[in-house]
Design a binder for these strands. Structure first.
Lengths: 331, 331
DNA sequence: CTGAAAGCGCTTACAG
DNA sequence: CTGAAAGCGCTTACAG
């Protein structure tokens, strides 16, 4: 591929002039400019962004490290972030950690080596050494959905506690006493928060959730399926189940479908995370909706700002909301 | 951030030695090696991949340019590709074109400037100037799901024609005569193929699909919704509708739900692309399933191979398959 | 096993 | 408006 020297030689100008006609900041006389562009076109010249980045210490690249794009919540966020990045002239490199701290560490290390201008991370654990490294490296960092306690960076997330509490209240009002929860890893902020809010909400109202009805999954589909089957096989199966995210909810619904257990006749069902198809399922699934769009917009707005060295951004904590549909009934 | 010189000075060795201890290819005596690593750790040194890339002419980065990650088909592919990339030590940068050729061109230009080692593209149109540019630039290129005719690069895709034809046959056997289709843009390979197979399949069996029952969408949700409403308002509404992808199917199902038109009593419904939740909807949606996993695996296998300068890869064309569930009934 | 030095392709302060 | 030259942080052939 042609480089700046080739173009300069061919056009009879210095490399500085070629550089200027492409970076556009400075003045180049119209005639020269045009000649350079023509020649560049003929040679198939395209400025080498790697060289430019090395020189300017600016890669115009952002990193997004999330558990899994297949989770609709993160899909939507990834889309929003990518849009905002592109619009501001940044590229987005994506990493899926599968909730594995080691994978997360590898991604972050690679991204730091690549000198990204900023990092958006949804960390797998509530404590993390490699995220302190980001801080130390002085790379703008933004937490998404979850955060690490000892790292001082803004977070964009929805607080689900209040909504989960409302769900518990709703379930109890319907007369349920045998509650169950399919939880995500309690070590994650979101996993711990949702589980905690559920158990405490019940306890506060005089209902305890015994250990056998608390099944810990990994936020992925298969674990939801397994967990639901496990709950169904209990001597005293629950009358109502709360699943802590959309992927596990899908698995759990599959398990219910397979075992011909009917919602809400045989069991009441509710999920954290609302999904486009929940209203279309029979019956429509009652869920706690995160303001996904708004979260995406917030991230999208903040990160380029940070990358460009703006002032420290404030955290954004929105509220999740209980959306009652038809999957829970009076017992 | 500390650079290689800082580490060299601090460790009392040359930069060459520091470089060697981190790139690992050559021999460095264990003692020196250890000292360098210790010092690097203390200084928070992390090799600058930008500089390395400039020098080695290898960015270890791949580009993935697709219409939209929010489309579950592409979500799954993106995940598979990212996994494979990471496993081989590549990063993945992602771009959403929204079927817009100009956006596509911008992404490709940026990616070429960034000197990616390879490009996976699902092009918006069947002809494209900027994709010839990729060829010209000598960057390994792989088409996904769709391809550009005049560009010589391998494709990984599923051929849906046969399955669409089987669907038409099935619909006619159920006695439907007023067929309708909600199509994607006919200019896209997949859009044109699906629409063509549907119309021809019907014509071959003596049924014509009038223009008013062919609604062109853009493969996105809202267009499916609008299209379905349009079809429903016809003086002679269809008895069976085929929707050409999953996102438009979601929109169409919403429209049906909103207008209280029941499936399959009032209208039979089938979709291209199978989705995890189709079996859970009431009634379960009959769909044409692409072998998403296999496609992802194929892409994942081929691209790093190409990026590493292996021989030219053969195209992979798999078959889509009709999955009959409960959303079509005898008329 | 180690070092000095050239060079990857740009940008930009400086001088004219 | 234009050019010569230094330098961004590495890698690597060459020599020892």
């Amino acid at each position: 591929m042609a480089n700046i020297k080739d173009v300069a030689r061919e056009a009879g100008v210095s490399v500085a002039t070629v550089s200027r006609t492409f970076s556009g900041a400075q003045f180049v006389s119209p005639e020269v400019r045009e000649r350079v562009i023509t020649i560049a076109g003929r040679l198939g010249y395209r400025p080498n962004a790697v060289a430019r980045s090395l020189r300017t210490e600016n890669t115009r690249t952002l990193g997004l490290v999330i558990p899994n794009v297949m989770n609709p919540f993160f899909t939507a966020v990834a889309r929003a972030v990518e849009d905002a990045a592109m619009e501001r002239g940044y590229s987005l490199v994506l990493g899926n950690t599968d909730e594995d701290p080691e994978k997360e560490a590898r991604y972050i290390d690679v991204l730091l080596q690549k000198r990204v201008n900023g990092l958006i991370v949804s960390p797998a654990r509530a404590t993390s050494w490699h995220l302190s490294e980001v801080e130390r490296a002085g790379v703008p960092l933004l937490f998404l959905d979850r955060y690490v306690r000892d790292v001082d960076a803004p977070v964009v997330r929805a607080d689900g506690s209040a909504a989960v509490d409302r769900l518990v209240e709703y379930l109890l009002k319907l007369g349920h006493e045998r509650l169950a929860v399919i939880s995500g890893p309690p070590e994650t902020v979101s996993g711990g928060e949702r589980l905690g809010a559920f158990i405490e909400g019940a306890a506060l109202r005089g209902i305890s959730v015994p250990e056998e009805r608390i099944v810990i999954g990994d936020f992925r589909r298969q674990s939801g399926r397994r967990a639901m089957r496990e709950l169904l096989e209990l001597k005293e199966p629950p009358t109502a189940v709360f699943v802590a995210n959309n992927l596990m909810a899908l698995g759990a619904l599959q398990a219910l479908e397979e075992t011909k257990v009917r919602i809400p006749e045989d069991i009441s069902f509710a999920s954290f995370d609302d999904v486009s198809w929940f209203p279309l399922v029979n019956p429509p699934v009652t869920a706690i909706a995160q303001p996904v769009e708004e979260l995406g917009v917030a991230v999208a707005r903040m990160l380029p700002e940070m990358a460009e060295g703006g002032e420290r951004q404030e955290s954004v904590v929105l509220k999740a909301e209980l959306v009652i549909r038809g999957s829970c009934k009076r017992v």
